[in-house]
Design a protein around this nucleic acid. Structure first.
Length: 324
DNA sequence: ATGGTTTTTACTGCGTC
DNA sequence: GACGCGGTAAAAACCAT
């Protein structure tokens, strides 16, 4: 059972990414010919694999037009102001008394009792479904807001929504804040999609504290059995490089450094961000494009010491290959 | 809670512009 | 003298147990 769930998600997520990128303008990267997700509609250009500029901090002014299955697609096909949480079902939901009495206070026949029991069951089902829908709506708004602030592409938001929805379905919410779980979902989605953001960055746009995000994230990942491999250092490279205004050449070198490091297993246990930052710095030295350690540490949010340690290791690994 | 590992903080010395 | 860089020791953060 749980196996089913897992494989389903994995495939589902993959599907989504592919259809997403191919639905947009088909752009293949000349360098890496990897997946290149552009979202011209929202003014974002994001390529996970190769050295294309990632535009950050863009504001998404698109309509709330998200659909999660074909049914919702039909219902939601409209443009307009986002639905607000002002719409309560205030007084509109049904309530069925628990006593087996009719309106005059008389007891019901056993057949009637059975019927009422069935009605209660169904009513309860619909009621909780409604509350979940409201919950979801709020969470999606939150996810969208944060994703916009971080300049994350559409497919990441989709994935985040899927994760959140599953968390909701599996009753992971009680005891946790909606915001916390939305943030965690987004964090997870960003990593799964290969455009990771560090916990710090995520925490910067969330209303929730960093360690709570981390806690919730771990919890969600464990409960939903999400398979999330440690972030690939290379996925940080383009962002850092463009933040520092480095050439494509440097970026290529940085990747190359990381590859050889990986092939030698230098990278295990080390923070991916640190490695990426070090690779970028090292590459800038190799191509004579002056960037200082402190500049790199600035954009990567990593200490200079770590950069130093890592980039020594990177260069050593490179030399080792060159010798043999 | 604990212990091992990694990252950060703070400080110092060296060379260069 | 300020700046970039390298190294070190101790503290803090992180992770698995």
């Amino acid at each position: 059972m749980s196996d089913n769930v897992r494989t389903y998600t994995a495939e589902h997520v993959d599907d989504e990414q592919e259809t997403e990128s191919s639905a947009d303008e088909e752009l293949q990267c000349p360098e890496c010919s990897g997946q290149l997700a552009t979202d011209t509609e929202h003014g974002e250009t994001v390529c996970a694999d190769c050295g294309l500029v990632v535009e950050e901090d863009e504001i998404d002014r698109g309509p709330e037009w998200r659909a999660f299955d074909s049914r919702e697609k039909d219902e939601k096909s409209r443009v307009g102001a986002p639905t607000t949480n002002m719409m309560h079902d205030k007084g509109l939901s049904t309530n069925i008394g628990w006593q087996d009495k009719d309106a005059y206070g008389k007891s019901l026949s056993s057949r009637q009792r059975e019927k009422m029991q069935r009605l209660r069951t169904w009513n309860e089902r619909f009621r909780t479904r409604d509350s979940k829908e409201r919950n979801l709506k709020q969470a999606l708004g939150e996810i969208d807001r944060m994703a916009s602030a971080l300049g994350l592409p559409e497919n990441v938001r989709e994935t985040a929504s899927v994760i959140y929805r599953r968390a909701l379905d599996e009753d992971l919410l009680p005891g946790r804040s909606i915001e916390g779980v939305s943030t965690a979902s987004l964090y997870a989605a960003a990593r799964q999609a290969g455009t990771p953001r560090s916990l710090d960055e995520i925490a910067g746009v969330s209303r929730v504290e960093k360690d709570e995000i981390a806690r919730t994230y771990r919890y969600v990942v464990r409960e939903l059995k999400l398979e999330i491999q440690p972030a690939d250092p290379e996925s940080y490279v383009p962002r850092f490089a463009s933040d520092l205004g480095l050439s494509d050449e440097s970026e290529r070198r940085a990747r190359q450094l990381l590859d050889t490091a990986k092939s030698q297993g230098i990278h295990s246990g080390k923070s991916p961000v640190g490695l990426a930052a070090a690779a970028v710095y090292a590459a800038s030295l190799l191509t004579n494009e002056k960037v200082t350690q402190s500049e790199v540490s600035e954009v990567a949010n990593i200490s200079e010491v770590t950069i130093r340690n890592r980039y020594h290791e990177l260069l050593e690994a490179e030399d080792g290959i060159a010798m043999s």
